[in-house]
Design a protein around this nucleic acid. Structure first.
Lengths: 347, 347
DNA sequence: AAAAATTGTTGAACCGTTTCAATCAATATA
DNA sequence: TATATTGATTGAAACGGTTCAACAATTTTT
């Protein structure tokens, strides 16, 4: 089954290629009889114009950028996407989103696809399995394909926009310690995400700057989803004596915190009376639940916006621009899911 | 500033186009000295190969499909996307997602972009402003670009995969009526979405099939987001006497229901003791909240999967295939946010 | 030393469109 | 009737890569 080209259509309709082209592009110059004949031929042959051939000739080629996120059903990433889209749209760029769902192979395919298609640049939230799996990023550099990373990746010089996870987490844990919490655990995030390690790091530092000793039992590997938090929480409290309960659980993100809250509710453990819960990210839900969640507000929208800004600046610049590394601050938001254990709270 | 082509690179590096091409495509045949020279020239000139020129010649062109959704931060659409992605990936297709955010112009641009890029087909959740704004869909048909719609659109013959909203809503409202609810209101969805009207229709039919009379006050225009439900609910109950309270609120979707619940909570109106609340869609959150939400489970994942299946079948078929119209059934899930008002509940 | 094999490079053909000056036919104008 | 004008169509030249048979230079084998 040979491929159908504009030539075939022209032949069947008894006209020239140029005329067929004119019909497809809805030029007004075509006689309606001819037009009809061409349309028929197109249908008859099931002709579908090849975008690549068209774009090769047409310089106009509308502008678009790619956004590679790690999880589509995570409000953290969709909020970033909204930031990207808002800015990009103002600048006349369309945003095409793909999700690697944490799969490195898929990430490679997607970045490749971005660079092959008529896409001007990309914003990438990389998956970090193993150590050195970044050839695909080097490949992008080789062909001068502009991109911005949403996480630091060791071993590559590139634009990065990220959140100061360490400091943010540090602030939250310090707050808890300062308010008399002595047994805090961290329901940590998925492997292969720099956020996970940075947040653990921040947790650890808060301890090292306190009078208490850090203990690796405090880190409970969990995941990034509501279900992860839910299951891990049930598991964690199963057969645990009340006197061994932590006084606070700091979660990798709000989704996990929501899962933890659901599990605690089920086990009839009161929040914040018995256990305080802290989230991370501040997704829209978090303030609209019965016990509004204390959390660390990540400026997701701004993150996306900033990334888009840098990317588009790079796309539009004739000369190569110096590499940028922007770190945004997160804000600690105290709501109702945490309580102080001091009779005379600090501050 | 003239465009840099492979020719320019070849000239600067003192080699032929073919060699430059070999370097870019990481062929092993290139001498490492030459390779280095070419790489330098690429960097020096900031050369960026054009995808379209490459794809024109290369038949391989990896497979991808487009998915146009209406709201990125709506779990309903992301769940559909996950369904699409799962199936597509098995079949070797990448999914590129774009969101129109309810904007018709943007939708047009996106569909156009899909058809121009090397994308093989698309799944589209259309925005339905006005009546006849579907020329962009006709344009797709003209060039035999395969696509599947996620909602019925009047005036166009196309593949559609949708949910039986009317029946689903009907079932839910009938359940409430059968359980003694006499004053039910519907917090309805956004304009320009067929879901909105279908759900209203289902609501109305349930009444017309009952002993009670439908009344247009029962339909309260709201929106599709948590915030919409929250605000509208506060507004609705503001200055309303307790004896005029509805016995149940049926919401456009779970997000709205969540917002309604948050507002009711704030107003200290008990769910389900004082008012029953019903959602729509069954997003993951809905079962993990203190009062798990009674809702209508839309088979979002299956919806996406089915759409992808039809699309890919069409893409891969040499002949045009008959148009398909698949309607999936939703399931009514009773949880804790509704109660019966009968002393002897039916069933 | 001749023949064969290996390695690296070239350059022309090709991919499938769009573009636009040139042409042609039909009609309006002088 | 000759000349412009208008409307519709043509066809050849791009567009910017990839491909691959052919060739050149070098190395290995006989």
């Amino acid at each position: 089954m040979k491929k159908v080209t504009i030539e075939d259509v022209a032949r069947l309709a008894g006209v020239s290629k140029g005329t067929v082209s004119a019909v497809i592009n809805e030029k007004t110059t075509v006689n309606s009889e001819t037009r009809k004949a061409v349309l028929n031929a197109i249908k008859e042959l099931q002709y579908r114009p090849r975008g690549s051939a068209r774009n090769l000739k047409t310089t106009t080629s509308e502008n678009s950028i790619g956004l590679l996120i790690r999880e589509l059903d995570n409000p953290f990433y969709t909020a970033i996407a909204l930031g990207v889209m808002g800015y990009a749209r103002n600048k006349g760029y369309l945003v095409l989103i793909a999700s690697s769902e944490g799969n490195h192979i898929l990430e490679e395919n997607i970045t490749k696809s971005f660079s092959i298609k008529d896409i001007k640049g990309a914003i990438i939230a990389p998956v970090l399995e193993g150590t050195a799996e970044i050839e695909h990023l080097f490949r992008l550099k080789m062909i001068n394909f502009p991109f911005v990373l949403l996480e630091n990746v060791k071993g590559i010089q590139a634009n990065v926009v990220s959140i100061d996870n360490i400091k943010a987490m540090n602030k939250a844990v310090k707050y808890l310690i300062d308010n008399g919490h002595s047994r805090i655990v961290h329901f940590a995030g998925p492997k292969h995400a720099s956020h996970t390690y940075e947040r653990i790091d921040g947790f650890r530092r808060a301890y090292s700057e306190s009078l208490f000793a850090f203990n690796s039992d405090m880190i409970v590997p969990t995941g990034a989803h509501l279900e992860d938090g839910y299951k891990k929480c049930l598991e964690y409290f199963h057969n645990r004596n009340r006197e061994d309960f932590p006084t606070a659980i700091v979660c990798y993100n709000d989704l996990v915190a929501l899962g933890v809250m659901a599990a605690l509710l089920e086990m009839k453990i009161k929040i914040p009376e018995e256990i305080s819960v802290v989230g991370n990210d501040d997704i829209p839900f978090s303030r609209h639940i019965p016990v509004p969640l204390t959390t660390i507000r990540a400026p997701m929208f701004e993150l996306g916006k900033k990334a888009a800004e840098i990317l588009i600046r790079n796309i539009e610049s004739p000369q190569p621009l110096p590499i940028e590394n922007v770190v945004l601050e997160a804000e600690f938001v105290v709501r109702k899911s945490t309580k102080t254990l001091l009779s005379y709270p600090k501050g």
